[in-house]
């Protein structure tokens, strides 16, 4: 891999954008590590799961199924549903990585997280230089991977030492809030967020957390509709 100036420049810009919000990843990782140990998995199994799966929602969602000895197909289906939102993110990021080799696209795809997409998505779609885009995407994503696995390591080996009533997992929610606030400065974005948020709340009764996926689709549709309505009104 040639570290040419455009790659380094992109990497620097990506890390600068990613760094502050990435703090919220650590408590989540620690909590995930603790959760895996708490259902009776040993250290090796917990670390193995994290290295292979690398998806907090799917990992946490699968734990009750693993604990209760559910059939493998059900675990697979649950994982698919909990990861479904990434198909949308993948479609949005794909044009930015078109120029890369298949191996790089597979690695880049595996490393695509909520945080990376939320923080890096917009600039990825706007930037013209494919080398700059690759640096801007892959370096923060690798940094996020290292951060996540380190947090899991702390959680897995320190499971007995963290008091539960500190609610450290709330730092994950704070990180999500910090990401969403600057996004919703335009009217259609605010509509998308409100519909997505309220939708998830109202549809939470759907099986396998499908409500989360449905709410995201509703939010996208509402934002898009608001944009059209907004521009139509501006034109008349």
């Amino acid at each position: 891999m040639a570290f040419n100036p455009a790659f380094k420049d992109g990497a620097r810009a990506g890390l600068r954008a990613f760094m502050p919000v990435s703090v919220g990843v650590v408590p989540w990782a620690i909590v995930t590590g603790i959760a895996m140990r708490s259902i009776g998995m040993d250290e090796m199994q917990s670390l193995g799961m994290s290295l292979l799966v690398y998806a907090a929602t799917a990992q946490l969602g699968a734990l009750p199924l693993i604990a209760s000895g559910a059939p493998l197909w059900l675990i697979f289906v649950t994982g698919m549903v909990l990861n479904l939102r990434f198909v949308i993110f993948s479609a949005a990021v794909a044009p930015a990585l078109h120029a890369q080799s298949l191996a790089r696209r597979i690695i880049g795809g595996f490393l695509l997280t909520d945080t990376a997409f939320a923080i890096l998505g917009q600039k990825l779609a706007e930037a013209h230089d494919p080398v700059w885009r690759w640096g801007y995407y892959i370096v923060p994503s690798l940094y996020g991977w290292v951060l996540w696995q380190s947090g899991v390591l702390v959680g897995v080996f320190g499971a007995g030492f963290f008091p539960r009533d500190w609610s450290l997992e709330f730092m994950g929610t704070i990180a999500l809030l910090i990401m969403v606030v600057p996004m919703v400065r335009s009217r259609p974005m605010l509509v998308a967020a409100l519909v997505g948020g309220c939708g998830a709340l109202l549809l939470r009764g759907m099986p396998l957390r499908l409500g989360l996926f449905a709410a995201i689709l509703l939010g996208i549709a509402a934002g898009f509709a608001a944009e059209h309505w907004h521009s139509k009104r501006a034109n008349t």
Binding site: I88, A94, L102, G121, G196, I220
Partner: peptide, 30 residues
């Protein structure tokens, strides 16, 4: 799921209107 469109690459290019709608995905998802 994460790899889907990224791995398919050039052949899976979505229509421009879908990509425009997807700009609302992060806010809705978060």
């Amino acid at each position: 799921t994460r790899g889907s469109f990224i791995v398919i690459g050039e052949r899976g290019r979505l229509p421009a209107v879908v990509l425009r709608a997807l700009r609302y995905a992060p806010a809705a998802a978060l």
